[in-house]
């Protein structure tokens, strides 16, 4: 009747793929912020933690998987966005928010813009950190990512760019987290309202903590 490929190009299959890749990326962000918080425990702990990751042979495999998930999420969302635009060639002269129980927000209306911003951000972020200057921590022979972090965030423009980008992350997650569950078909009369709140809280917490690290690194670098 229908092939698996056609299934994933259908409007519902597309949602499934975007939802599952989105949730995987969200899970990655949770692990990412968890690891990054170790920066508050000092240079040695943070460098040891990053060394543990860098020396793990499983990490490159996971990284490749993460890149593929990221690219699939980007590809499916962009193609869906373009398809959706075609579905209404003549716009309304006047269009208004329909009111409760609609979940439409500024965040939900700008997912494509926040997503494109994050695509650019991730490229810059990975090139300045993962592929940034390779310092060696004195007396250990392992990479000094702590120093790189303080250096990168010594520029107020970089801090500003990161704070802004984390607002964009928060906006993307504000709609994205709960929306992903709906896309995967997960609804429940009691749990869905709680999930909607939890998604917004998670968005604020994750974005807030990443911002705090950037600002803290700027302040710490300025002191030393």
């Amino acid at each position: 009747m229908t092939t698996r490929v056609r299934v994933f190009s259908s409007s519902v299959g597309t949602k499934l793929l975007i939802g599952i890749t989105g949730l995987a990326l969200f899970l990655y962000l949770v692990l990412h912020i968890g690891g990054n918080l170790m920066v508050f425990l000092g240079r040695d702990v943070f460098n040891q933690y990053s060394h543990m990751l860098l020396s793990n042979p499983l990490i490159p495999v996971i990284e490749i998987g993460l890149v593929l998930i990221f690219l699939l999420h980007v590809y499916k969302t962009i193609t869906m966005f373009l398809g959706n635009r075609k579905a209404r060639p003549i716009p309304y002269e006047q269009k208004k928010y329909a009111g409760a129980p609609s979940r439409k927000t500024l965040a939900s209306s700008t997912m494509i813009l926040s997503g494109l911003w994050l695509l650019v951000f991730v490229i810059i972020h990975v090139s300045t950190f993962k592929y940034g200057t390779e310092y060696e921590a004195p007396g250990t022979g392992i990479r000094d990512l702590y120093r790189l972090e303080l250096e990168n965030f010594s520029n107020p423009l970089t801090v500003g760019f990161y704070v802004l980008s984390m607002l964009v992350v928060g906006s993307h997650l504000r709609h994205g987290v709960a929306s992903a569950f709906q896309s995967l078909g997960a609804t429940h009369p009691r749990w869905t309202p709680r999930l909607l709140v939890a998604g917004k809280v998670a968005a604020a917490v994750i974005a807030g903590l990443f911002m705090a690290i950037a600002v803290w690194a700027y302040a710490t670098g300025a002191r030393s």
């Binding site: 409007s11 519902v12 597309t14 949602k15 869906m80 398809g83 959706n84 075609k86 579905a87 209404r88 928010y97 329909a98 009111g99 409760a100 129980p101 609609s102 979940r103 439409k104 939900s108 209306s109 997912m111 709609h175 709960a178 929306s179 709906q182 896309s183």
Partner: peptide, 15 residues
């Protein structure tokens, strides 16, 4: 038929 996909905003339910 050219209908779009769903962004889970719920404007449909509201109207």
């Amino acid at each position: 038929d050219g209908f779009g996909s769903c962004s889970n905003e719920g404007e449909c339910e509201a109207v």
